[in-house]
Amino acid sequence: MPDLTDMAAKNLKIAILSGKGGTGKTLLSVNLASAAIDSVYVDCDVEEPNGHLFFKPKWNIETEISVKIPQVDPHKCDGCKRCVEFCKFNALAYINGKLKIFDDVCHSCGGCQIICPQRAITEKDRAVGTLSIGDSEGVHVLSGMMKTGIALGIPVINELLSQCGSFEDERPIFIDCPPGSSCIVMESIKDADYCLLAAEPTMFGKHDLEMVWSLVELFKKRHSVVINKCVDQSDPTEEFCNENGIKILEKIPFDVELGTLNSNGRIAARESKKYRDLFSSLLEKIYREVSHEAAVDSER
């Protein structure tokens, strides 16, 4: 097998995503990051991060993430409602001579502060989550966790992704995305060089794959599919990929041993040669796809 460390493009960002939870995003992410050894694993599933349960890292850094939200000085506010009319997200209301601010609806654009003729609006910090950075056998582990009750994960994901390229040594970055195809997923794949779509060989799996596939197509992201939990029967997901010319990079069999290791919070690629080889081989295929496509791109 070729040396994967040499093949890895520097700071290559690989996003692993899927239409629904439970298809194997985290399985793929933690095992690929472990197979790559000197890598970065970023858990962008900030609503329910679970990558750290596998890596069990020693956290070296834990910091609070906050956003700016407006606060009003009621003595300065003269009720002109310019801020209320300006806010595209309708985070402000003016009732009975008082400005009411909906913190959860605010997207921290700062516009209300700028537009206020009375300069009655200032900004304050609002804690939205925490960022933890640790190490696990050579893998830098970054994990974001939203604070309970916070509605939007985007600021936490932004902070995670801005931190993941900050390591001095250049290494591949594996981004474990939230499930689905909503804003938080878009934010997670925004800067990715390559997208790996985890899918299941079922009708539901096909449906959910179609959603994320539409998303990566829309974002013009290079991508391929890994079908997880494959059994020996007809597979609508595979048919869908073939019909649409989507490359299937790997088919991981439905495997009790792999399932058991994973459900016990163990990283299969670290536990046995069989799985180390499986994920190293998948990683090699990803690197080949990236370098091949890069070559195709440069010819265009």
């Binding site: 997200f89 309708n90 985070a91 209301a93 003016y94 909906f102």
Partner: peptide, 10 residues
């Protein structure tokens, strides 16, 4: 796009 309830209530 968002906050329709707040705007309508206003």
């Amino acid at each position: 796009q968002g906050g329709a309830g707040i705007k309508a209530a206003q």
